[in-house]
Design a protein around this nucleic acid. Structure first.
Lengths: 348, 348
DNA sequence: ATGAAAGCGCTAACAC
DNA sequence: GTGTTAGCGCTTTCAT
């Protein structure tokens, strides 16, 4: 279909148009909307609102931002918005922001720290009220230093920085209890009779995953089980990464494995795909457990045992801090809980 | 951890700071960055760039937008960003926009047309370069009229409007071949020996789904099979909606059903969940097919038969139009293709 | 090629 | 309570 009314491009109606139409000064018009500060006479206010409605006026938010010197935007940095964990996080954050009068702007970092750095500069230029870094951090000291410096500047100019699940940056943090959840999971699995584990650990550079591996190991240790280092397999922190890692595993390694724990659900599902590809049945031959309890799991059979992380609570906590919280508040850690499903039945 | 360097909030460095530091006028500094228009002496340019780097200057994008009178933002309206279809779309659009020098801003409409209306006004205030409406349209004539008027204003002020898979709005459209794909699917299933169908049609108000139902019906008709109206079940256009609809189905209805076709994969998966809950095995007792080929399917067993839609191509097409295309270009329709998987085996 | 000055749309002192 | 006047940070004529 053709565009209607194309051709004559018209200048958008501005506040001064409205003011003129209502027969008041621009400042009065402005005050009629923002309400706050000096109150404006009810009759005039109505005239202004009416004129605005008639002209279909809508305020230019960019201009408002420039004039006010601050925005109402939260920049949310995620690795990959097509990933179920991050898209749920974005959804929760948006819903929460909405009711706090804030907008969230999602930015994808593609799991590359250079890109992250680039993106943070951009965000600094947008003068977001806050920047939330979700997803794991990296162990690259040099780049992390630069990133930190960049984030410091955000704070210096009045912005807020909140990190989610990443221990590499010294800013306000909101976290899931990764170590605790993993520990409980390890203990639960040991209780179910599991002894021979293989851990898909993600990238050693990613901080949050370390906590999960360490916690899991601690949970096993609680049950008197030791997890050797060679049972901890690094891989890319993604479905594909886990799948590839499992495909590369030697037959002997898998033969000695009764349960695969992947540090997140996406990876666990990638592992399941690869295991099935190699002829293993889940859970008859090999059991699998993950972490996060992503929405995808509702469609997966057998149900994947995992550790549930309260994403909505996290979003509420993060947005709450940004909206009302005091800037340097100490970090908070949200409780996680083990969810046992059919992918890890009791043995014998 | 405490915030570092908190306390002394400092004014962000501006272009005039850079200009002063470089000993040039603000206009020269500006030109040193934007490069275009009048060229600036190479030596001076270097001085400016150096000063900027030293001061850690980053341009205020809001101010740029106000001064230039246009932004570089594409507003993408989706029903629900946690939905696999929309999050994939967002990811594809962002990737595509990136390489075209544009940003995409995702906005969630929650499948409510009033909210959609509200959101479009907001976007109009942000002076986005384009607004892309993904997700199905509604048959509410009154609100659609208002929405259309709002979108007309976007165009009048130089913005671009592109709709994806919704026939209710007379703007530039980019679509998947919904009818064609569904028709092929119907024909393929008939060829596999299926005769007794049940269609989960989503909401009758949603336009795109109608095409899928109609196409499916046409495909069956090609094979001499008639699909009665009472075999087409409306439901909310979501996983939960389909699940609930299937749960409410009478035993007799299901007894007369050999295959359930849902107009998208999310719904198909919701149906699978409900069917299993009622004791049906998939596909031994009832087969299921969906539409979209969302990423989630890689983890679903048995594999779900569906119609693949080329999301990356769609994103490229949409962004291409916005970046280089002529405004009133005719709509385009992208080919879809049937993907037969284990959820619909050949009968006997 | 560079600088001075006007203006983008809006808010916020500051006077009246 | 209302209008006048400066800005906000940047781009872009218009002179030079």
């Amino acid at each position: 279909m053709p565009q209607p009314s194309s051709g004559d491009r018209v200048r958008p109606v501005t506040l001064s148009d409205v003011a003129r139409a209502a027969g008041v000064s621009q400042s009065t018009a402005s005050r009629a909307f923002n309400g706050s500060a000096r109150r404006v006479d009810e009759a005039l206010k109505q005239r202004v609102l009416e004129a605005a409605a008639r002209l279909n006026y809508v305020p230019n938010t960019q201009a408002q931002a420039v004039a006010r010197g601050r925005t109402t935007t939260i920049a949310l940095l995620v690795s990959d918005i097509a990933d179920a964990y991050f898209s749920s996080m974005a959804a929760a954050m948006m819903a929460e922001a909405e009711s706090a009068g804030l907008r969230v702007s999602v930015i994808v970092t593609e799991r590359r720290i250079e890109r992250e750095l680039e993106v943070v500069r951009e965000v600094r230029g947008q003068h977001a009220r806050a920047i939330v870094l979700a997803g794991s951090g990296y162990r690259d000291a040099a780049l992390t230093g630069t990133l930190r410096a960049e984030l410091d500047m955000v704070i210096e100019s009045g912005g807020r920085v909140v990190t989610v699940s990443r221990g590499d940056l010294p800013f306000e943090s909101v976290d899931f209890d990764n170590a605790g959840g993993a520990r409980q999971l390890g203990a639960s699995l040991a209780r179910l009779g599991y002894r021979d584990f293989l851990v898909l650990a993600g990238e050693p550079e990613l901080v949050a995953t370390q906590d999960r591996v360490a916690g899991f190991r601690a949970g096993l240790a609680d049950a008197g089980i030791e997890l050797d280092d060679d049972r901890v397999i690094p891989s890319a922190f993604s479905w594909e990464g886990a799948r590839d890692a499992v495909q590369r595993l030697g037959d002997d390694v898998l033969a000695g494995t009764r349960l695969v724990f992947a540090v997140n659900d996406e990876m666990a599902l990638g592992a399941v795909a690869a295991l099935r590809g190699r002829g293993f049945r889940i859970p008859e031959d090999i059991s699998v457990a993950g972490f996060d309890d992503i929405r995808t799991l509702r469609d997966v059979v057998p149900g994947l045992t995992t550790v549930h992380v309260p994403i909505a609570d996290l979003a509420a906590e993060v947005v709450g801090r940004i909206a009302h919280g005091v800037p340097g508040a100490p970090g908070s850690i949200l409780p996680t809980s083990v969810v046992l499903r059919d992918s890890t039945p009791r043995l014998n």
